[in-house]
Design a protein around this nucleic acid. Structure first.
Lengths: 194, 194
DNA sequence: TTGACGGCAGAACATTCGTTCTGTACTGTG
DNA sequence: CACAGTACAGAACGAATGTTCTGCCGTCAA
């Protein structure tokens, strides 16, 4: 595996991706990198592919690889002696959306009303990222449909029955008669404070 | 402008994009959508383009449009017997990034360590959306720089001095000697639970 | 019954894509 | 100096791409 040539190549590609959210074709890459030979673009792409920065879809289309969104340590420090203000887990965030949403078609946002889950750090007005699915596991925070309204609660089981436990001792446990209708499972939380 | 045909087309495209981070070619779109005519794929793409869900790069490559990353926001109440997401009614569309980030150039994400702000619903591992600015108001949740480390606290004032109050009684109030260095003000919160 | 229309299939086509192969200039090494 | 290796340029080529046009079929209104 040959070394990667010009580090700015990756920078330019990442900038292009940040703007267009797409990997360009070889000829566009050529102008982007200031190269005039497609063969050399292909060579560079191969090295990025071996390095894990680029990859191929099952249909052989070029796409970002596993390491494409890594942040470089060089840009980490803002001021002398300070750690990176952003994410310290080694990954740069392309978009918040991408961080929270795994399956767009099954994902819905639900606004929280009331403070019945305050112990779980879920406040009134927060948006919950919900992955829609009809069943869940014990301990999951779920959005259930009780009396034609959304309710956010912990899912638990008691005497062979599904129950909904609030995250706030001032509220009662809900023991639905009949079938419990689950709208989805909480996958994330969004709060806007400004 | 013709109406958009099958809403599931957009779902499938968004799921594909969430997995591969790339818009596929027309022939791949054809199999993805179960269509066997590229001409019809082109027609569908055009409608998505007119709707703002797809777009073109300056090099005429297909890319996600401004509305591509919109998510469904369920309205508060569910109508009797109709909690089904398949219907277009009852949903607002929200882009998570636009919702949280007002000024991208001044916005940073900071990961929370510790539970000193647990009373404010800020948990360990959460990401804070920070708008960088050197000063803030009383009551704001700020990221300050104390002993070369980031600290998230309430900003308050005591005897003409700025102080930092935790959202957890187990932690002490911080009374910095000299100038208090503020990194930014909390504008939002992101939590991933799955 | 007819005609218009929308949804879709299929083929034809120029353009563009990525690959491969050959060639050249520079650079470091012994 | 010879030699190998690296960094590119350029051309050639089949495969794939996106566009366009023609045609079928079901639906619905007149």
């Amino acid at each position: 595996m040959k070394p990667i040539l010009d580090p700015s190549y990756l920078d330019k590609l990442q900038d292009y991706y940040a703007e267009h959210k797409v990997i360009p074709s070889y000829s566009v890459l050529a102008t982007l990198w200031g190269i005039s030979a497609k063969s050399w673009v292909a060579e560079c792409v191969n090295r990025f592919r071996e390095g894990g920065f680029l990859d191929h879809t099952p249909d052989r289309q070029l796409k970002p690889g596993p390491r494409f969104f890594e942040r470089k340590l060089a840009t980490a420090t803002v001021r002398a002696g300070l750690p990176n203000p952003a994410l310290d887990d080694g990954y740069d965030m392309v978009t918040i959306d991408d961080y929270l949403v795994r399956m767009p078609s099954k994902t819905t946002l639900v606004r929280v009303r009331g403070d019945s889950m305050i112990d779980a750090g879920i406040h009134e007005g927060d948006l919950l990222v919900i992955e829609q699915q009809p069943n869940a596991n014990i301990g999951d925070i779920v959005v259930a449909i009780v009396d034609d309204e959304f309710t956010v609660k912990y899912l638990d089981r008691e005497k062979g029955q599904w129950i909904l436990k609030p995250g706030n001792m001032a509220y009662p446990v809900i023991r639905p008669q009949g079938k419990l209708e689950i709208f989805g499972v909480m996958a994330g939380l969004i709060r806007k404070t400004r």
